[in-house]
């Protein structure tokens, strides 16, 4: 389904929802890709494609992510949360240097979900891996299980949270693929920032949608998964690795 068509359907659904609700309530926010009354579906599998040959020295994805999600630190890098980080690689033999953004890879078979005792760590139907902070007990087993070091434990009290991104002390968190934006039909903040200010290295889309750019490129160009040996089938793919 192309974006325009989704948009039109979204408007229709929003209008329908508006008609159903009591007229006195002006609660409906405008245009959503998926209407609020439509559940995330396994027909979709959200993912990212990152071309690291275009990824330069900038940090725009990281800044944008932490701004969007209200992830603020206390100047203590060991315990501050990082949802996305730039990883610098240098080949041991040749010294060939590369840099790439690393975050939750939104695996199809996520080890964090397997190990979570309460099921707080879970994968949504559309492939987005999330932490349900209502049932997270803060055991940190998922942090140990994640192959990508993608998860952070909140070590200190948090204030100034964004309305769409609740965060609190004593629970684990990680990249949500900006699920609140995706549900509105937008792209994640890192992708938006990369395409606006950065190297235009990131593409977001539905891996199942054959008309999407991400699908087309994965179909016709080589790409790889980090730690493909674990066969986790990640939603985040890299090119040029």
């Amino acid at each position: 389904m192309n974006p325009e068509r989704r948009q039109v359907l979204g408007w229709g659904a929003a209008a329908a929802a508006g008609a159903v609700l009591a007229p006195g309530l002006s609660l409906i926010e405008l245009a959503r890709a998926r209407s609020p009354e439509e559940a995330a579906s396994a027909l979709q599998r959200w993912g990212l494609l990152i071309d690291i040959s275009k990824c330069g020295e900038c940090n725009d994805c990281v800044t944008a992510c932490h701004e969007e999600n209200g992830v603020t630190g206390h100047g203590r890098p060991e315990t501050d949360a990082q949802w996305i980080r730039k990883v610098n690689l240098r080949d041991k033999r040749t010294g060939h240097a590369q840099t790439l953004p690393m975050m939750c890879q939104h695996c199809e078979d996520p080890p964090c979900v397997d190990v979570c005792p309460t099921g707080a760590s879970f994968k949504r139907e559309d492939g987005i891996v999330l932490v349900d902070k209502h049932t997270c007990i803060g055991c940190r087993y998922c942090v140990m299980a994640c192959p990508y070091g993608a998860r952070s434990f909140i070590h200190e009290a948090v204030s100034g949270q964004k309305a769409d991104v609740p965060r609190g002390k004593g629970t684990v968190e990680s990249c949500t693929l900006c699920v609140h934006r995706v549900d509105r039909g937008e792209t994640p903040a890192c992708v938006e920032a990369c395409n606006r200010d950065g190297g235009k290295a990131m593409v977001f889309g539905d891996l199942n949608d054959s008309s999407a750019e991400i699908h087309r490129r994965l179909r016709s160009e080589p790409s790889s998964q980090v730690r493909a040996d674990l066969a986790l089938n990640t939603g985040v793919r890299y090119q040029g690795l």
Binding site: A39, A40, L130, D183
Partner: peptide, 17 residues
Amino acid sequence: TMRQGLREPLFSLKNCV
């Protein structure tokens, strides 16, 4: 909202606030 991505605004905490 959390599990299914259903963001109906009516009974959302955001709406209360």
